[in-house]
Design a protein around this nucleic acid. Structure first.
Lengths: 127, 127
DNA sequence: TCATTATATATGCTTACAACATATATGTCA
DNA sequence: TGACATATATGTTGTAAGCATATATAATGA
């Protein structure tokens, strides 16, 4: 209809192409992981990313919010506005599909970790 | 002078931004790793990528050659044409700077592997 | 001998998105 | 009252991922 090609995919199709695509996508599984433990708002998530070795100065704050909006559009999380002492913030909750997406991320992440270990081993062999 | 901004960086500046950039960059360290073991030409490298868990069908052949050309332009590898039974191929050799680049890649890859392990552990805690 | 496949090295094109900057609004504290 | 922290976004732009295509020779084999 309009020039833009429709690119929304469901969780299974989209999965989590860790293998050959950009790693900034890592904030996506991170967000899903934290949300799988408890509801959170964006700013809090940014803080928690440091648990995974991200340095706060390095985090693209904007990207976190953008990923959150996208995940919501795709149905992997949902949000509602909350007022806490006059300050409004958007609380996110993971959906069932979100948990499924997380679990396929985990598979990929294990594969990836194994690949990195192979890489390191191969390197050390040569020393 | 011309509109294009000069963006060539040396090994240290550029390092290997595994942390927040695209993973397709993984073919770069892979190439460096293989070349650190022995001289190789592009087509052979493509074969060897499968040792690291890449499926041959998934590899963007063109990307491999492009990375090789870029690495040479940046001084991390050098090449010369070789004729083997009439067939010409470009043999690549890693440079000292290339080995340095590889070793900083290794650092990043270890960090990354550790981050993935933390991620997996965090996930498993919640089960 | 002609077609096909494997070897071998590239370049062209399009579009998504990483990286960066900027906008906005309120609460807190000195 | 000015700065800083909290909180959530959007705008912009260059780059490169992902795909297709080009090219040339050697080997295979029907």
């Amino acid at each position: 209809m309009n020039g833009k090609i429709e690119r929304n995919l469901n969780a299974k199709e989209r999965a989590c192409d860790f293998s050959l695509r950009r790693l900034s996508r890592f904030i996506e599984p991170s967000i899903l992981l934290f949300l799988s433990k408890e509801d959170c708002h964006g700013y809090e998530l940014i803080d928690r990313l440091s648990f995974l070795g991200f340095h706060k100065e390095d985090i693209d704050i904007g990207a976190v919010y953008r990923v959150l909006r996208r995940l919501e559009k795709e149905g992997f999380v949902k949000s509602k506005w909350e007022s806490r002492g006059g300050r409004r913030r958007r609380m996110y909750r993971i959906t069932r599909q979100g948990r499924e997406l997380l679990s396929s991320w985990i598979e990929r992440i294990r594969e990836r970790r194994d690949a990195l270990n192979r890489f390191i081993r191969l390197y050390e062999e040569g020393l």
